[in-house]
């Protein structure tokens, strides 16, 4: 029985020999326990994802921001399993004036977001962002922006290969600028595999997307340079 369960585990990971699939379909469909097993593996994936996001919510505040940054790879590490169930992390970045907040505006925002209309708008924005992030992840050409941006002032060189990336040392990323802001007022970022996706609002209601092996600090520095 464990041998079958191990095969289910391997199938879940896409590590099964294709010749074994038919046999496993037959077994799984005639055995409720095996179906439950497969479902539980998926549930573990959800739990790994969502469980750690709750932990992260406790961490995110300005005072612990530096500590949070130093742990970000670890805390995000447990959240990356599901491609689409990307755990959203909101941050305030105190060195980036656009992202600062004050009490008055916070109160206004608090009352505004309680309106039903605002909630509907937020839900729609969330869908646009989700669609955008899914394209970043699933469409290899989506981030191949044809317009080259000079980022040498922040130390990044454009890669001449076909992947339209920018590099500095070990950091390598692709960049794309949207002429819409998705309703974003703060940096949002996700971890997918060993790469990061950052959505950073810049001037004129635009949003810059950075995808690759790049730190939050570098991503924000690049966004600031685009704002100048």
């Amino acid at each position: 029985m464990d041998n079958i369960k191990e095969k289910i585990s391997a199938m879940y990971d896409g590590e099964l020999n294709s010749s074994e699939i038919d046999e496993l379909i037959e077994i799984v469909n005639n055995n409720k326990d095996m179906q439950k097993q497969l479902s539980l593996y998926s549930l573990i994936n959800v739990a790994v994802n969502q469980g750690s996001s709750k932990l992260k919510q406790k961490i995110v505040n300005k005072d612990s921001f530096k500590k949070f940054l130093s742990n970000v790879w670890l805390s995000n590490g447990l959240t990356a399993a599901a491609t689409v169930l990307l755990t959203l992390t909101f941050i305030n970045y105190s060195n980036f004036s656009r992202l600062n907040e004050n009490i008055d505006s916070t109160n206004q925002i608090s009352s505004a977001i309680n309106s039903k209309e605002a909630q509907l708008i937020a839900q729609r924005s969330e869908e646009y962002i989700t669609d955008h992030v899914m394209k970043v992840l699933n469409d290899p050409n989506y981030m191949n922006s044809s317009s080259r941006i000079d980022l040498r002032n922040v130390g990044f060189n454009h890669n001449k290969s076909n992947d339209f990336s920018y590099t500095k040392g070990k950091e390598k990323f692709q960049l794309r600028i949207e002429n819409k802001d998705f309703g974003l007022k703060k940096v949002r970022y996700w971890k997918h595999g060993n790469k990061m996706i950052y959505l950073i609002p810049i001037e004129n209601g635009k949003v810059v997307t950075l995808y690759g092996n790049i730190s939050l600090t570098s991503a924000v520095e690049i966004a600031k340079s685009l704002d100048r």
Binding site: I21, L38, S42
Partner: peptide
Amino acid sequence: LIKKAKKGNHGAFNILMNKYYPRVYA
């Protein structure tokens, strides 16, 4: 699995569903 399910193999579809139901639900 999708190819098999399209040909009417309910078993293949059940596997896909077991695999993704919790994520859809969440």
